[in-house]
Deep mutational scan, measured.
Amino acid sequence: MAAGGDHGSPDSYRSPLASRYASPEMCFVFSDRYKFRTWRQLWLWLAEAEQTLGLPITDEQIQEMKSNLENIDFKMAAEEEKRLRHDVMAHVHTFGHCCPKAAGIIHLGATSCYVGDNTDLIILRNALDLLLPKLARVISRLADFAKERASLPTLGFTHFQPAQLTTVGKRCCLWIQDLCMDLQNLKRVRDDLRFRGVKGTTGTQASFLQLFEGDDHKVEQLDKMVTEKAGFKRAFIITGQTYTRKVDIEVLSVLASLGASVHKICTDIRLLANLKEMEEPFEKQQIGSSAMPYKRNPMRSERCCSLARHLMTLVMDPLQTASVQWFERTLDDSANRRICLAEAFLTADTILNTLQNISEGLVVYPKVIERRIRQELPFMATENIIMAMVKAGGSRQDCHEKIRVLSQQAASVVKQEGGDNDLIERIQVDAYFSPIHSQLDHLLDPSSFTGRASQQVQRFLEEEVYPLLKPYESVMKVKAELCL
C-alpha cells in the first residue's frame, strides 16, 4: 500500500493539533497551500530580480507567473513527485505547466533550498508574528487579574506546605514575570531571523556568478533584492546548502521555554482548584465526569500541561538535527523538520489560546482563602504575639514557653481530632496574655502579614508589564474561544 493518505478522510490519521486544537490561522501558515504558494512567490521574486539585473526574462513571463501564483494543481504535483521522487522539481514542473512561456526560467540558477529553506524562514517569521500578540493578550488578562487582587491576602506555599502570606495578585505576578520573559525572547528570536537568500547549491553562489558572467556586484544585488522582497532586513552571508540548523534550535528553545512557563502556571491553577481557592472557567453544560456528576475538573489547565510537556520535548529534535548536518548538509534534517517545526508552533498556539481562555474567566473564592488563612495564621502570628507581650512588660522566655504549650495543644486538636485551630481562643482565655487581649485582632490582621506584596504588584505592572504590552494595544480586544 502506498504511503500517505487522504487526510480529510475519517479513515486516515490526522494530527489532533490540526484537527482538534490549533487555530485556523496557525494551521494555514503550515498548510501545503501556504507552503507551495510561497515557493511560487519566491520563484517570481527571483525572476523579477534577475530581470532587473539584466537576464533575458520578459515582462510577459513575469506576468504569467504572477497570474498563476494561486493556480496550484495539487493532484498534478503529487503525481509528479511520485514520478520524480523530488518535491521541488515536482512543483517546478507543475508551475511550468500553467506558465508555459515562463517554464524555462522558473528556478533559474537556484537549488531546492532556495524555495525550501527560504519558505521555512518566512513561515517561522509569520508563525512567530501570530504567537506574539496571543502571548501579549494572556499577559494582559493576567495583569488585569493581578491588579484587581493585588491586596487580597492568601496563604503562600513553599514545598506545598503553608508559608508566609502573600497576595493573590502577587502570586499571579510570578506567572506574568515568566511570560514577559517569554514574550521578550519570542520577539528577540523573531527579529534575529535572517533570510537564507540566493546562495546556490553549497552556499557559494557559483551558479549565479556564472549567470551574471562573473559580476560579483550583481550577485550581491540579486541576494539583497530577493531578501528585501521577502520582507527581511538581512540575509546570511555564510550558508551551506541550507541555512544553519542552529536557527531551528533557537526558535524551538524559546517555544519550549514558553511551554515550561505555561505548565507551571496551569499546575498552580490545578492545585488551587483542589484547594477550592480558584477555578478555571466551567461552562453551564460542561460535564466533569461521566460517573461523578459533582466533579469540576480543571480540564483546560490539564490540557495545557499535557501539550506543554510535548512542546518542551520537541527542542531535542533540532538539537540532534543540527549535530548531524555533515559538511554542507545531509538530508537527516528533512523529514524531522517537516514534523517538529509545525508541531512546535501548533502546540504553542494551542496552549496560548487555551491559557487566554482560562485567564479571561478565572474565578476566585475569597471566603475559602480566608478560612485557610484562619487555619494557619495563628501559628504564624506567634512571633508577633511574643513581641507584643514583651512590649507590655512580659518575659520573652516565659511567653515563648506559654505559646509553645498552647500551640501544641491547638495542633493536637487540628491533627488528632480534625478540629479547627483554636490557638487564639486559648490565648484569649489565658490570664497571662490579658495585657494584649485587646491587640489580638490587630495582630491577626492578614494584611499585616503580606509585606509589600501589593506595592510590588503595582510597581511591576507599571514599570515592566504595561510598557512591554504597549506595541500590542491594537490587538488586545480579541477574545479566545474554545470549541473543545
Rank of each mutant, 00 (worst) to 15 (best):
E60P: 10
R338G: 01
S9F: 11
I386T: 10
L468A: 15
T52Y: 12
T321E: 01
K246M: 01
S447Y: 14
E463Q: 15
A206Q: 15
I57C: 06
T239L: 04
K276H: 10
E280W: 01
L46R: 02
R459V: 12
G393R: 06
E302R: 02
D32P: 05
F449C: 03
N126L: 06
M476R: 14
L346E: 10
D129T: 13
N384E: 11
F157M: 07
T201W: 01
Q205S: 07
L406S: 07
T244Y: 01
A235G: 11
L108A: 10
R85V: 11
Q63M: 12
H159D: 00
V315F: 12
S323D: 01
Q41M: 14
L314G: 13
R337Y: 04
D223A: 11
D268Q: 07
V92H: 01
G259R: 02
R194C: 12
A22L: 10
L53E: 04
G8W: 12
K147L: 08
D317R: 00
L131S: 14
G54S: 09
D332L: 02
L444V: 13
R194L: 11
T111E: 01
C483S: 13
L443N: 06
A410C: 05
F379W: 09
G361L: 13
V251S: 11
I265W: 14
Y294T: 00
H107T: 03
I176R: 03
L252Q: 08
D182S: 06
F28D: 06
M278P: 00
K233H: 01
A431L: 11
D117I: 00
G394V: 04
I265E: 09
L346T: 12
F208Y: 05
Q164V: 12
A453C: 12
K470E: 15
G393F: 05
K35Y: 10
M292E: 01
N185F: 06
V226C: 11
R338M: 02
K367F: 01
K101Y: 02
E81F: 00
E79A: 13
K224W: 08
K246H: 04
K402W: 05
I403N: 04
M76R: 09
S301L: 08
K224A: 07
K470L: 14
I139F: 00
K295M: 06
T204C: 11
T58M: 06
Q397D: 11
L222R: 02
I105S: 10
A77H: 14
D349Q: 07
K264S: 07
L362Y: 04
L84Q: 10
E60A: 06
N384H: 09
R371T: 08
P153S: 08
D32Y: 09
E79C: 10
K246Q: 04
K470N: 09
D268E: 12
G240H: 06
Q408E: 14
L84K: 07
T154Q: 11
D87I: 04
V364Y: 01
D144N: 11
Y114S: 07
V405F: 11
S447T: 11
E464D: 15
C305I: 04
S359D: 12
D192K: 10
G54F: 10
R396H: 05
P446A: 04
S323F: 00
I424E: 09
D430W: 06
N274Y: 02
L152W: 08
Q455G: 15
T350V: 13
F379G: 02
T450A: 07
H437L: 08
E277C: 08
M292L: 04
S412T: 15
Q161R: 06
G394I: 04
T58W: 05
G54D: 05
S19Y: 02
L44P: 06
W39H: 14
M89N: 06
K147R: 05
L186K: 03
P10R: 14
W175T: 05
F327R: 02
P100I: 05
S454I: 14
A22W: 14
N126Y: 14
W43G: 01
K75S: 15
P446V: 06
P24D: 08
I436P: 07
Q408K: 11
L152A: 00
S434Y: 14
A230E: 00
G394C: 10
R426L: 03
V226M: 15
C304S: 06
D129E: 11
V405Q: 00
I385P: 00
D178E: 11
A22T: 10
N384G: 05
L255H: 13
D178R: 13
A388L: 10
A22S: 14
M389Y: 04
A90M: 01
G109L: 02
L255R: 03
Q210V: 07
D215I: 11
I238T: 03
I287L: 08
E401M: 06
V219G: 08
Q51K: 06
V390E: 06
K233T: 04
C99W: 05
M89F: 10
K101L: 13
S112D: 00
L346P: 05
T450D: 00
Q41W: 13
F282L: 05
P471W: 14
H86C: 00
M292I: 01
V262T: 15
T94I: 12
T242N: 15
A230G: 06
E48T: 07
L255A: 07
C99Q: 01
Y466R: 13
P471D: 14
R309G: 04
A344P: 10
T321I: 12
S323G: 07
L132S: 13
R338S: 00
L341E: 09
V413N: 10
M312S: 05
D420R: 04
E25F: 11
I106W: 02
L258M: 07
V198E: 03
A78S: 09
R426M: 07
R245W: 00
L307Q: 14
I386E: 07
A146L: 00
E250H: 02
F28T: 10
L252K: 02
L341G: 14
D144A: 10
S306P: 06
D73T: 04
R33W: 14
D6P: 06
E81S: 09
R40M: 00
L469V: 13
R296W: 07
L461W: 10
L275S: 10
L469Y: 14
K187W: 08
S12W: 01
W43K: 04
S19A: 14
L468H: 14
V429L: 14
F433K: 03
V363F: 08
Q177A: 14
M316N: 09
K170P: 06
Q416N: 08
V168T: 06
A411I: 05
P133G: 07
S359C: 13
K402Y: 08
T382S: 11
T330L: 08
R194W: 03
Q408G: 07
T313V: 06
K391R: 08
T111A: 00
L252H: 13
A453G: 11
S474F: 14
P366L: 02
K246F: 02
F460T: 12
H159P: 02
E328L: 03
P467I: 08
Q164C: 04
I72L: 12
R37L: 11
G96Y: 02
V364F: 01
T321A: 03
R194E: 10
I339P: 00
L346K: 07
L443T: 14
G451V: 03
H437Y: 13
S112P: 05
S23C: 00
R141V: 12
M76I: 05
D192N: 11
T94V: 15
E213T: 13
A103P: 05
T244F: 05
R196Y: 13
L346C: 02
C304W: 02
G200V: 00
A322H: 04
L165V: 08
F433T: 07
N68V: 10
Q455C: 09
Y13D: 08
D422A: 01
L352V: 09
N297M: 01
L222P: 01
L155K: 02
